[in-house]
Amino acid sequence: RRSITMVNSCTGKMGKSVAEAAVSAGLQLVPVSFSAIEVPDGKLNICDRDIHIHDPSESERILRSIAKDYPDMIVVDYTVPDAVNANAELYCKLGLPFVMGTTGGNRQLLNKTVQDANVYAVISPQMGKQVVAFLAAMEIMAEKFPGAFAGYKLEVMESHQATKLDVSGTAKAVISCFQKLGVSFDLNEVNLVRDPEEQLAIVGVPEEHLGGHAFHNYHLTSPDETVSFEFQHNVCGRSIYAEGTVDAAMFLHTKIRSGADKKLYDMIDVLREGNMR
């Protein structure tokens, strides 16, 4: 049986991308989503499918109802940071397996909620599989060779669409690895590029992706400035995250079908499974 997915919320750019990727991958898309954003006729058309948009205040009542119609449903959450914990509590209360792609919220509480409820879930602030693999490699290096870059100077530049105000979670994780490798660096030193003109002229972001991109550059220089290392990962658009999210939903579907003892997973678990598109 194919995986059945409900995307909460399809009205956001990320949720819409995930819904499109799910249909493209052959998953069955539940024609219901929740959003405080009003849409014409209360419907959104995605890949020739009408998705009925309901107010979040109705989510418990409607989720209870559609869970009966779609007993194998997996919920994918791309909402807002403020809703992360309440949404997870609702999914757990109803026994609904879910993939949490939304960043923010209280992550410790989020994990505890899932563990206490014993519900299947994939939780990751970074759904891009290749970016996760790069992060994992950085963590292995930091663990195996602590202090390897002691004395080196680190410069970090990260560029995202203007609506992203904070330092990206991925940059924070990579910086943490460099700190374990012996580099002295403070998060306030990150060069946050959010000005579209600067992104075009200096960073090199293609114009069509100014509204959705993630460019990261980490530059290391030796104390005597004779040696330098550069790590870079540039993402245009949202397809890398959407495809990773769909893989996470399919992975979770497989774990549920096999009755796996482990219930809470992250993207490293999905990567280890290996059968990614």
Score class of each variant (00 low, 15 high):
residue 49 R to S: 09
residue 38 E to V: 12
residue 74 I to F: 03
residue 65 S to K: 13
residue 80 V to I: 07
residue 48 D to N: 14
residue 79 T to N: 08
residue 93 K to R: 11
residue 36 A to S: 13
residue 10 C to I: 12
residue 33 S to T: 13
residue 49 R to P: 01
residue 13 K to P: 00
residue 12 G to A: 08
residue 51 I to T: 04
residue 106 N to C: 02
residue 113 T to M: 05
residue 114 V to L: 14
residue 13 K to I: 01
residue 86 A to R: 10
residue 69 D to Y: 05
residue 18 V to L: 03
residue 39 V to G: 08
residue 51 I to E: 01
residue 48 D to Y: 07
residue 74 I to D: 04
residue 24 S to T: 14
residue 99 V to I: 14
residue 56 P to L: 06
residue 95 G to H: 10
residue 27 L to S: 05
residue 81 P to L: 07
residue 118 N to W: 04
residue 88 A to P: 08
residue 54 H to S: 04
residue 126 Q to P: 05
residue 89 E to D: 10
residue 88 A to S: 14
residue 52 H to G: 03
residue 17 S to W: 03
residue 61 R to Q: 09
residue 76 V to F: 11
residue 29 L to S: 07
residue 78 Y to E: 07
residue 27 L to H: 10
residue 62 I to N: 00
residue 109 L to T: 06
residue 108 Q to T: 06
residue 84 V to I: 05
residue 33 S to C: 03
residue 78 Y to R: 04
residue 30 V to E: 06
residue 66 I to F: 07
residue 81 P to G: 06
residue 29 L to T: 03
residue 49 R to K: 14
residue 56 P to F: 02
residue 97 P to Y: 01
residue 109 L to Q: 13
residue 93 K to D: 01
residue 117 A to M: 12
residue 50 D to Q: 15
residue 97 P to H: 02
residue 90 L to P: 00
residue 56 P to S: 08
residue 50 D to W: 15
residue 64 R to Y: 00
residue 111 N to R: 13
residue 54 H to F: 09
residue 80 V to L: 08
residue 122 V to S: 10
residue 46 I to L: 06
residue 19 A to S: 12
residue 120 Y to P: 03
residue 31 P to R: 15
residue 11 T to R: 09
residue 86 A to K: 09
residue 101 G to H: 02
residue 79 T to Y: 06
residue 47 C to G: 03
residue 103 T to M: 10
residue 103 T to F: 08
residue 57 S to F: 01
residue 63 L to T: 04
residue 29 L to E: 04
residue 25 A to W: 07
residue 86 A to N: 11
residue 23 V to L: 14
residue 99 V to S: 09
residue 28 Q to K: 13
residue 28 Q to P: 01
residue 102 T to N: 06
residue 12 G to L: 05
residue 89 E to A: 15
residue 127 M to D: 00
residue 59 S to C: 11
residue 98 F to C: 14
residue 19 A to V: 05
residue 76 V to A: 09
residue 32 V to C: 10
residue 77 D to R: 04
residue 18 V to Q: 04
residue 121 A to V: 07
residue 22 A to C: 09
residue 26 G to E: 11
residue 66 I to Q: 09
residue 59 S to N: 10
residue 27 L to C: 11
residue 31 P to Q: 15
residue 20 E to A: 12
residue 46 I to D: 02
residue 21 A to R: 09
residue 22 A to F: 08
residue 102 T to C: 10
residue 111 N to E: 12
residue 10 C to W: 02
residue 91 Y to S: 02
residue 14 M to R: 03
residue 47 C to V: 12
residue 13 K to V: 00
residue 49 R to Q: 15
residue 129 K to N: 11
residue 86 A to T: 12
residue 45 N to V: 15
residue 80 V to Y: 08
residue 95 G to A: 13
residue 52 H to S: 13
residue 93 K to W: 00
residue 33 S to L: 03
residue 125 P to N: 07
residue 16 K to S: 10
residue 114 V to Y: 11
